[in-house]
Structure formats: C-alpha cells, structure tokens
Amino acid sequence: MTVTPAVVEEEPTKKGLSFKLPLDETEMGLIAGIVAAIVVVFTGLPAVIKGIALILAFLWGMDSVRKTSKYGLGTGVPSIGVLATGFGVVGALVGLALAKYGSIEGVAYPAVLVGVILMGVIGLVAGILSNHEKVIAMKIPKLERAMMELGMAGTLIILLECSIVTGSLNFNAVVNQVLNTGLIALMFIFTCFGLLHPYNACLGPDENRERTRMCSVEIVGLLCALLGFVMIILSSFSWELGSIASVTISSPWKLWNGVSLLIFGLAVWAYFFRMFIKACMDEAYETVGTGMIKTIE
C-alpha cells in the first residue's frame, strides 16, 4: 500500500528535456482511441505501425489510471491497472469471436470493435456502481469515464498485441498462437505494467504528467522488443503442442516484421529510458554522487 499525495497543480517543467505532446487528456483519449481502433481493424499493416498505435493506446490508458489514482484508491495504484487488463482480456475474447463477421481474411476485421464497445459498457457499469453513493461510494470524480476508458483501452491493447503476434485476428489463429502457447501470460502482465507502472513509479507530490508519459512509452518500447523477438522465433515453425493442436507457421513477412519491431522497440526504449532518467535527475531536489544524510534534532 502506498501513500497517495494530495492533488496538486501541475507545474511546467524547467529544463529542455521535456516530452512535448501538447494534448490534454480528452484529446489524447480521442486521438489514441481512433488511431488504435483503425490500426486494430486493419491487421495487414506492418508491425511497426501497430507498435505506434500500441504506444498511443498505452498513453491513453495511463492517463486514465493517473487521473483515477490521484485521489487515492485505498489499495494502491496497481489494482486499477490489473482491473483494466482483466476487462481487456474478456473484451478481446468477445471481439475475436465476433471477428469473422464482415471480415476480409488477413486484411480487415471491423467487427472486433464491437468487443471494445461492449467492454466500454461493462467498464461504465462498473464505474457507476463503484462511484455510486449507495453502493461502494469511492467518491472519485469522473471514475465512471475513467473505468470506461480503461475497459476500452485494455481491450484495444490486448487486441493489438494479438494482431502483432499472429498477423490476423482470426479466432483460431489467435487461440493457437497466443492463448494455447501461454504467450497471453506475457501480454497480460506487460499490459498491466504498461498501464500501472508509469504512475506507480512516479508517484509523489511532485509527480508530473510529462515524466509519467516518458516512462509509459519506455515500457511499451520494451514490450515491442519482446513481441518482436516472439515474432522472429515464431516466423518459421511447425510444432506439436502436447495434445492440443498442431500448428504450422512459416512466413518471411512475419520474420521481417519481427526484426523491424524488435529494432523499433529497442530504439524507442533506449531513447525514452535515457530521456526519463535524465528528466528525473534534473528535476529531483539534487543529484549527487554520494553524500551524508541530513541530521535531525
């Protein structure tokens, strides 16, 4: 359990190392939602584009986590990120089941968005119940909207990750390559961390949104690198998975997508990690090589 600070006004950062995406939370949500929805429908796009959409979706989710957790949840920041991921997995299952309707095999699956919308509805219901005075009475402003956004962002993120690894949103392909192989465990936990870690790591009275966002992008970079590695290995394989299914995949397209995603992920991670640590060191009270602690009494 962590101590959550009182809500403070955001101050502009002092040094040049800032991550300028001059968007407030609503604009960010709209842009990220639309871009991620378009990318998730067209699965034929290169993996790097999906990676960019993934970054936007994570930034959106992170904003929702941040504005909810600012008021103190009672059990720490991580719970809300896990909640979003749990919703996301259920939504993704439904979206994938619906995907075959109106789809162009391997190119576009517009019906998956129904899963996203349904999950938004469930999130909204959960938010209303949690915030309602007569039910759980969490008394967090705009919790309803945040939970709805978290459900939608979580679903979009899981769907994007599935689409990156399999290259399509065909239910059977996803089940064979993602769910039965256990890759979903990696996706589940990294989605949790991408959503909860930025705000959890930057928590404190002098937290600011720009720094938190850098941390978010950095983690998505890491996730992209891992997914790229997964794609490279899975690009040329035919294996028997116990008694479950026999899967054969072989595609040079996937190999090159994997390599490009790995490079993209590592580059994004390296750039933003350096930027984040530098920003922290600049904006901390002071950064010293070593030193004694302040004596009290």
Partner: peptide, 23 residues
C-alpha cells in the same frame, strides 16, 4: 530497468522534501 525507473521516478517526485538522488 524497472528498478531504476521506479527509484528515480519516486525520488524525483519527492523534490519538495529535499530528498536527493544519490548515484
């Protein structure tokens, strides 16, 4: 990576309490 980001992030967010980052 995660340890480093959380230590730096949390310490930077404690600026007003004069907690420095000791390298």
């Amino acid at each position: 990576i995660f340890s480093m980001s959380s230590h730096c992030g949390r310490t930077a967010a404690q600026k007003r309490f004069e907690q420095p980052i000791y390298l």
